[in-house]
């Protein structure tokens, strides 16, 4: 029997447990980003003799910032377009466009991001733009499909009741359909964000700022330590955002009391 355990109040304990999925990757991420030098003894064996063990050409905080900036910008744009498109094709007048919208979104997903980069560089030049385009195209499909699924699962009698009580089409959409579809839409955004966090690393091949440059620098100089540092930080970011979005989803679902 745990008689002499310190008296932690159950509420705060539960709070910590609920948030551990967010806290653990967050703390690890901060540790890796701010105190990388303390890991030098561990990483030195992975480094070629004479080469630097820790990436110092830029601060990790700066690179994380750029990385996230690209992801957030691209996925925000993708969300707006994909959600709007899904709403349009789910209306009575837009149903004809469903196959077209679906194949466009699929195309975005099928095209490998590397190919998009290769095609985009001649058009918009080196830097962040080609990466933004690739992330945007790659992010469309999950959000589009989930928005469609979310709107589709709203029970018909609920929509009929809304209409029968005197709501106009926009009121039915904003007050009933979208709130009920929101948890599923958020799941789509989560998938896109996580895919993007990983995919954004290849943007560094065309000179976009981000954590990809640490990994690529490592690959070019056979420095496994660099690859590991970049890779772990990207993975922790993906885990952190996954956990954050899952919290949001369960919050939304419990608000709807499903």
């Amino acid at each position: 029997m745990p008689v002499n355990t310190p008296a932690a109040s159950p509420a705060s304990f539960e709070y910590l447990r609920d948030w551990r999925g967010v806290l653990v990757p967050l703390l690890l991420l901060l540790y890796f980003a701010l105190f990388t030098s303390t890991l030098e003894p561990l990483l030195v064996s992975l480094t070629p003799v004479g080469a630097p063990v820790i990436y110092v050409r830029d601060s990790f905080i700066n690179l994380i910032g750029w990385h996230l900036f690209l992801v957030v910008l691209a996925i925000t744009a993708a969300s707006l377009i994909a959600i709007a498109a899904a709403i349009l094709v789910s209306r009575a007048g837009g149903a004809d466009f469903l196959p077209l919208a679906r194949s466009l979104a699929n195309l975005g997903q099928t095209l490998p991001p590397v190919a998009v980069l290769a095609l985009a560089v001649p058009a918009v030049g080196f830097g962040s733009w080609p990466t933004l385009i690739a992330l945007f195209l790659y992010g469309l499909l999950p959000i589009f499909e989930n928005t469609l699924a979310g709107l589709g699962q709203v029970r018909p009698e609920i929509k009929e009741a809304a209409k029968g009580l005197g709501m106009g089409p926009m009121q039915v959409l904003w007050r009933v359909e979208l709130p009920l579809a929101l948890p599923v839409i958020v799941t789509g955004v989560r998938l896109s964000v996580i895919i993007s966090i990983g995919t954004a690393t290849i943007g560094s091949t065309v000179a976009a700022k981000g954590l990809g440059e640490v990994i690529i620098a490592g690959l070019l100089t056979d420095n496994l330590s660099f690859v590991l540092q970049g890779g772990i930080i990207v993975a922790l970011m993906a885990m952190l955002f996954d956990a954050l979005f899952q919290r949001l989803e369960s919050r939304l679902l419990s608000a709807q009391n499903h």
């Binding site: 029970r155 009698e157 609920i158 009929e160 009741a161 809304a162 209409k163 029968g164 009580l165 005197g166 709501m167 106009g168 009933v176 709130p179 009920l180 608000a255 709807q256 009391n257 499903h258």
Partner: peptide
């Protein structure tokens, strides 16, 4: 049609209550 429907009460099988709204907000709809 919308204005007409707000003057007419409508109750259906399966109720069609809004699951994301409380009883209060459901009743307050119209």
């Amino acid at each position: 049609p919308e204005l007409l429907r707000r003057r007419i009460g409508y109750a259906i099988q399966g109720v069609g209550l809004f699951p994301h709204r409380t009883v209060y907000d459901n009743i307050a709809t119209v």
